[in-house]
Simulated assay, not measured.
Amino acid sequence: MKTFIILSCVVAAALALPAGDPHHLRALPALNHEEIHDEYGQYALRYITAENTVVSERGRLVPGNNGGLVLVIEGQYQFLGDDGQVYVTSYHGGPDGFHVDGSHLPQQVPLPAI
């Protein structure tokens, strides 16, 4: 499950990168960083960069189908694009899979039933 969380964070960070030179990473520090963890692995985090990128995410335990607990993540990030528009992306990961939503993203194509 920790691998899923780390992978989700990496995906979120990669999607927040601007288009252009893939070798140029913006290295501005976070202006505001808040992070809370509990003894069960639940967490909440939020940070804002100097470029006004805002990232927030939380992980909480919910009852799973097999009687155990499942860590569900919910998050959102927003950034100002080179075109001057603010782009907001929300994501959710849990027992039903990983889902990403944003008005700037292409619509998902439904898969035919097998």
Results as ranks from 00 to 15, higher is better:
Met1Arg: 10
Lys2Asn: 06
Phe4Asn: 10
Phe4Ala: 11
Leu7Phe: 12
Leu7Ile: 07
Val10Cys: 02
Ala12Asp: 03
Ala12Ser: 14
Ala13Arg: 15
Ala14Asn: 13
Leu15Ser: 02
Ala16Ile: 09
Pro18Ile: 01
Pro18Ser: 05
His23Tyr: 12
His23Gln: 07
His24Val: 09
Leu25Thr: 02
Arg26Ser: 11
Ala27Met: 05
Ala27Ile: 00
Leu28Gln: 01
Leu28Lys: 00
Pro29Asn: 08
Ala30Asn: 08
Ala30Thr: 06
Leu31Phe: 00
Asn32Tyr: 14
Asn32Thr: 08
Asn32Trp: 10
His33Val: 01
Glu34Lys: 04
Glu34Asp: 04
Ile36Phe: 04
Ile36Met: 03
His37Val: 05
His37Ala: 03
His37Pro: 00
His37Cys: 01
His37Asp: 11
Glu39Cys: 07
Glu39Trp: 07
Glu39Asp: 14
Gly41Ala: 03
Ala44Arg: 10
Ala44Leu: 09
Arg46Trp: 03
Tyr47Thr: 04
Tyr47Asp: 01
Tyr47Leu: 06
Thr49Val: 00
Ala50His: 02
Glu51Leu: 12
Asn52Val: 12
Asn52Gly: 00
Thr53Trp: 01
Val55Gly: 07
Val55Cys: 07
Arg58Ala: 01
Arg60Leu: 10
Arg60Phe: 06
Gly64Arg: 08
Asn65Ala: 15
Asn66Trp: 15
Asn66Tyr: 15
Gly67Asn: 07
Gly67Ser: 09
Gly67Phe: 07
Gly67Trp: 08
Gly68Ala: 10
Leu69Val: 13
Leu69Pro: 03
Leu71Ala: 02
Leu71Lys: 00
Leu71Trp: 00
Ile73Lys: 02
Glu74Met: 12
Glu74Thr: 10
Glu74Asp: 13
Glu74Ser: 15
Gly75Cys: 06
Gly75Ile: 07
Gln76Asp: 08
Tyr77Gln: 04
Gln78Leu: 07
Phe79Pro: 03
Phe79Gln: 00
Leu80Gly: 04
Leu80Asp: 13
Leu80Ala: 09
Asp83Asn: 12
Gly84Lys: 05
Gly84Trp: 05
Gln85Phe: 15
Val86Tyr: 15
Val86His: 11
Tyr87Trp: 02
Val88Ile: 10
Val88Phe: 05
Thr89Gln: 09
Thr89Leu: 14
Thr89Trp: 05
Ser90Met: 09
Tyr91Arg: 10
His92Trp: 12
His92Cys: 06
His92Ile: 01
Gly93Arg: 11
Gly93Trp: 02
Gly94Asp: 03
Pro95Leu: 12
Gly97Ser: 15
Gly97Leu: 14
Phe98Gly: 10
Phe98Arg: 12
Val100Gly: 10
Val100Tyr: 05
Gly102His: 05
Ser103Pro: 01
Ser103Glu: 08
Pro106Ile: 06
Pro106Gln: 14
Gln107Asp: 11
Gln107Arg: 14
Val109Ile: 15
Pro110Tyr: 13
Ala113Phe: 05
Ile114Glu: 07
Ile114Pro: 11
